[in-house]
Nucleic acid binder design. Structure first.
Length: 866
RNA sequence: GCGAAAGUGGCGGAAUAGGCAGACGCGCCAGACUUAGGAUCUGGUACCGAAAGGUGUGGGGGUUCGAGUCCCCCCUUUCGCACCA
């Protein structure tokens, strides 16, 4: 064993051995329970950053722990390899997207291997691989056959200058992210998945998983699905063969309605304009509202604007004539795109009615039972109180009125109970190149015909010109587009859309279970063995999109008979980001830390630097830390240890150079103490020597067993890995104290070596999830032949962990006044007696009468005095 | 605006079921060993106070023998949603 710790020698060696010995390869087996530990697949951006490392360090720690606890662990990795950024890089730099992606995978994989992540690389999946996306296409066709997909005209964000469709993110602020041209909406035929058919089930499933998922994610998904129960109510348009249906959750407030308000896109508007002989102003107004809405900056509310259409509708409950308005605050995409305005019961309607001087009518009492006259209303009453001024329902509590009035509307044929969701059907097609081709063919005679299964995959053509004018790049590849119809053999065209990359990430972790299957997406038996995922780890940014789509996909696959369970992910951990301080100089902009002196002046211009916030690492703010640089300086183990120690996994962590060095220093400290003892340990058989142990031996054994217990419990329950690291450091400190005691006692005895072996080997084993390379190295040097991947996690004994003597805190009136020592088995009365005999306690009591003595066994005595 | 989470030393953070606040680390201070050390080891380090002692978990109130932890009000920060009828 080398005296000094050189991480950059031992780490690559160890990584090679893991690879050649296939240490982390998993296969189904019957005699051990399985554990599926999954980190989100990586987007192939080019390089791994600290955020990736922290994500994978958490997963890897858990995978190691479970492995050592005897589980059959599946811990795979893969690449989210399709998508816009590769295409953009290609357009900008002229690199082929595939080449760009392959290079990115090669670089990132190399980085992860250099981090020593214990992945089973034999199961690696890249979503841009035809052998993978073939099954996207297969799923697409199966879903089409089952009516789970449909096409509809739908607006897409479109940059008129570059003639390209944009995602919502790329069109945020209403302008193109590249050229700042105002974005327009273009209507295109698009593919949609009927995720709304599963809205209720997706909602109900949350109850099943909520114990293993962060509350915040469950809440976000609940809001995203946005179920609300209410009613549809039909309003006849006066003098017209037209009915306007509104959605309301508060039919009990309908007597307070003062208008019907339509979204600018509502289909009744042209009819009304025609009937009222409008001179075009109404349609123009509606058009203007639509345009303004699109240009809306996103984070600010538009001022409410409306216009009376000239027509009236009839309130079916009381036959009142209500003016029909068009306004920008009514959304076409929610409910029916039409509402009844009730100013006394809804804040938006209140504001709108105020602005346009529409009449008010009070329809609810206040919580204290008063009726505020309508003309004195300051804010609408949105609570569920008693109904007033509402015909036969006056005096009825709101919930009951809601019920009764819904029934009344149903009986009279102008309304019905209805549930509305916020979640929309999922638009899964993209007019881009770098994605899975939609496997459909458009035939003039036969319509839409799927590619036959034996023709899959429909391979994405290479060498495609991405800088095309109009449409998707694939439109301009005739040899791809022109195909015979699979049904009639006549002339037909391929669909040139590609799939949203969220389709790729929906089921990649099912594929890991059977990555090379060329007959089906996966063998259901293998999936049955490994799934569901026991622990999933990834960023909070996927709380709704990926994590709701993948739950949906699971249900689709279940309905196809491929899987047997309802929810694919039992436990979810959303890890925090790694942040770092930023520096801003008014002259020179963002500065690298090395451009800032210790007294915070700018090295470029000598001005005082403004310290920015602690922010997410980014190139532009010059606060990014390159993990490989860190590995080169202190090793992968130190980097992993630091990110795990910096804070609980789910919290954001702040990068600290000195903290990182501290982690490296700790590993050196471990190395030194193991070095000192290793040859004695290797020679020791581990049999308990005869004779009574002495003080320092008893202490170390006790602490060892206590710390094994606390780390084990932490892994099993809370996964607060930062405190596990603290405990390891404590154990190390105990071993140093022991070592010192041994030295001052004049040299080690056989009993000392036995105790040291137990403690040091426990330390090394428990260090494995955090710093596996050094752990394997030290383990070998303690005389072991097998990788720690095949060694057991240390066991603790309650007996040995028990304190011989208890330190009991004594309080007087709740204030700490002294401490007493007692035997473990001391009774409450004995503790009380000891406490009262204590000098400090006596003087604190100061002769006052004792009212009560509270004894908390093993912990504390509180003496209550007058 | 609505919703959620959080607020603890100079800093990152501990305190799992209401029971000794500040574990562990960073930083800082001192000592030892050293030609030297930015290495290592040892000790100290919440605040006020010379000490005795007192004060302390964003602020204010409450429950309790006892509150960082539970309840009510307020402040601040972060995140999510943002006209969802």
């Amino acid at each position: 064993m080398q005296e000094k710790y050189f991480p950059n020698e031992i780490e690559p060696n160890r990584q090679r051995r893991w690879a050649t010995e296939k240490t982390f390869q998993a296969r189904p087996e019957s005699d051990r329970p399985k554990f599926y530990c999954l980190e989100m697949l990586a987007y192939t951006s080019g390089r791994a950053h600290i955020g990736h490392i922290s994500n994978y360090a958490i997963g890897d720690a858990l995978a190691w722990y479970k492995r050592m606890r005897g589980f059959n662990v599946l811990h795979p990795f893969g690449w989210d390899a399709f998508g816009q950024p590769a295409e953009t890089a290609a357009i900008k730099e002229g690199i082929d997207p595939e080449q760009f992606t392959r290079d990115a995978i090669a670089t990132m994989k190399h980085q992860l291997i250099r981090m020593g992540m214990s992945y089973d690389w034999s199961r690696e999946v890249a979503t841009c691989d035809p052998a993978y996306y073939k099954w996207n296409q297969w799923f697409f066709i199966r879903m089409w056959e089952r009516g789970m997909l449909y096409r509809k005209l739908s607006p897409v964000n479109w940059c008129p200058k570059e003639d390209i469709s944009l995602s919502n993110e790329q069109a945020s602020g209403g302008t193109c992210w590249r050229c700042n041209t105002p974005v327009i909406q273009k209507e295109l035929m698009q593919w949609f998945a009927r995720i709304t058919d599963y809205a209720d089930e997706l909602l109900a499933g949350l109850d099943q998983i909520q114990n293993g998922w962060p509350d915040r994610v469950v809440t976000m998904q609940r809001n995203w699905i946005g179920r609300s129960e209410g009613s549809h109510v039909d309003f006849k348009v006066e003098g017209l063969e037209e009915t306007i249906t509104v959605f309301t959750t508060r039919i009990d407030t309908i007597f307070g309605a003062n208008a019907i308000v339509l979204a600018p896109e509502h289909s009744s508007i042209p009819k009304i304009a025609q009937a009222t002989g409008d001179d075009g102003q109404l349609l123009e107004f509606a058009e203007r509202l639509k345009q303004e809405k699109r240009a809306q900056a996103g984070d600010q509310e538009l001022e409410k604007q409306g216009r009376f259409t000239g027509a009236h509708a009839i309130n079916p409950f009381n036959q009142e004539r209500l003016p029909i308005w068009v306004a920008n605050f009514v959304l076409i995409e929610y409910g029916t795109g039409a509402i009844m305005a009730v100013p006394a019961g809804d804040e938006r309607d209140f504001e709108f009615s105020r602005k346009y001087n529409l009449p008010f009518r009070q329809i609810k009492l206040t919580a204290t039972g008063e009726e505020i006259p309508a003309d004195e209303l300051e804010v609408p009453n949105e609570s569920w109180t008693t109904t007033v001024n509402s015909g036969e329902w006056s005096g009825v509590p709101a919930r009951e009125a809601n019920q009764l009035m819904t029934e009344y509307a149903e009986q009279h044929g102008f309304g019905k109970r209805s549930i509305t969701y916020r979640i929309r059907d999922w638009g899964i097609s993209r007019q881009r190149y770098w994605g899975t081709p939609v496997p459909m063919i458009h035939c003039e005679k036969c319509g839409i015909v799927p590619v036959s299964d034996d023709q899959l995959p429909v391979v994405l053509p290479t060498g495609v010109n991405l800088k095309v004018e109009g449409g998707s790049p694939l439109d301009h590849v005739p040899e791809f587009v022109n195909v015979p119809c699979p049904k009639c053999g006549g002339h037909a065209r391929r669909d040139t859309d590609t799939m949203d990359t969220f389709v790729d990430s929906n089921w990649y972790y099912f594929r890991y279970c059977d990555p090379n299957n060329d007959r089906q997406p996966f063998d259901p038996e293998l999936v049955k063995y490994w799934m569901p995922v026991d622990q999933y780890i990834g960023g909070i940014e996927h709380a709704v999109l990926h994590l709701i789509y993948t739950r949906y996909w699971n249900k689709v696959m279940r309905d196809m008979g491929l899987v047997q369970f309802d929810e694919p992910i039992s436990r979810l951990l959303t890890q925090g980001m790694v942040l770092k301080e930023t520096f801003w100089c008014d002259n020179d902009g963002w500065l690298f830390p090395e451009q800032v002196t210790e007294d915070k002046t700018c090295l470029l211009c000598g001005k005082k630097v403004v310290i920015g916030a602690v922010e997410k690492m980014s190139k532009s703010k010059k606060n990014a830390v390159d993990p490989i640089e860190m590995v080169n300086s202190q090793g992968a183990d130190a980097l992993r240890l630091f990110v795990l120690f910096a804070g609980p996994p789910e919290k954001d962590k702040e990068w600290s150079d000195t903290g990182f060095e501290g982690a490296a220093r700790y590993l050196q400290r471990v190395w030194r103490i193991v070095y000192k003892w290793h040859s004695w340990i290797a020679a020791n058989q581990g049999t308990i020597p005869a004779g009574e142990p002495v003080e320092h031996q008893r202490t170390l054994r006790r602490r060892t067993h206590q710390i094994i217990r606390s780390i084990t419990e932490n892994f099993d329950e809370r996964l607060h890995l930062n405190t596990c690291v603290s405990s390891l450091m404590e154990l190390t400190n105990e071993i140093y104290a022991f070592d010192q005691a041994v030295d001052s006692s004049g040299g080690s005895t056989e009993a000392d070596v036995f105790v040291a072996k137990e403690a040091i080997e426990a330390l090394v084993r428990m260090l494995t999830p955090f710093a596996p390379h050094i752990a394997e190295e030290l383990w070998e040097n303690c005389g072991h032949k097998h990788s720690l991947a095949h060694e057991a996690w240390p066991e603790y004994s309650e007996e040995l962990a028990r304190e011989d003597e208890l330190e009991i805190a004594v309080q007087v009136n709740g204030k700490l006044r002294g401490r007493v020592f007692a035997n473990v088995g001391a009774s409450d009365d004995q503790l009380k007696e000891l406490a009262l005999a204590n000098g400090k306690v006596k003087s604190a009591i100061d002769g006052r009468a004792i009212t009560k003595v509270v004894v908390i066994p093993r912990k504390l005595v509180n003496v209550v005095v007058k």
